[in-house]
């Protein structure tokens, strides 16, 4: 039952594999980016679930109360940055895809490979 108790990690691994598989196996550049996004999101989930303290509340100072259990805010803050990075990567990737489409007329990996030769 220990394995099930860590279901959040199972979810993370599942997502990660889905993303990674899409990234590798798909030939469409946009789909690759989607895979990359899922992959990165899984990491975000990993961090966020890591920061959760069982029974803890959101880490906002509660006035007057003593001995309040807070969740760890740092992983969340870190993931804020990771999200920004993810957005930037996606935006840059998509803009590259748009320009590739304009330059080559396709966004399929195998067709691009033929074009490049």
């Amino acid at each position: 039952m220990i394995a099930l108790g860590l279901f959040n990690y199972w979810a993370v691994i599942l997502l990660m594999m889905v993303g990674f598989y899409t990234l590798i196996a798909r030939g469409n550049l946009v789909k690759k980016l989607i895979g990359l996004n899922i992959f990165q999101t899984s990491v975000i989930m990993l961090y966020v679930s890591m920061g959760k303290v069982a029974g803890g509340t959101a880490p906002i100072l509660v006035e007057g109360a003593e001995h309040v259990v807070y969740s760890n805010p740092i992983p969340h803050v870190l993931m804020l940055t990771a999200i920004v990075v993810g957005v930037a990567t996606t935006a840059l990737g998509l803009s590259l895809v748009v320009r590739i489409n304009e330059a080559f007329g396709t966004v399929e990996d195998d067709e691009l490979r033929d074009e490049s030769l």
């Binding site: 990674f20 550049l29 690759k32 990359l36 961090y47 990567t89 990737g93 590259l96 080559f104 691009l112």
Partner: peptide, 26 residues
Amino acid sequence: RRALTAAYQYLIMGSVGATFIVIGIG
């Protein structure tokens, strides 16, 4: 124009690498 595909390829592999690093850090 192949600079675009080169950049894209680098972006995918670089991001995967960076994400692996984040997992390790996490």
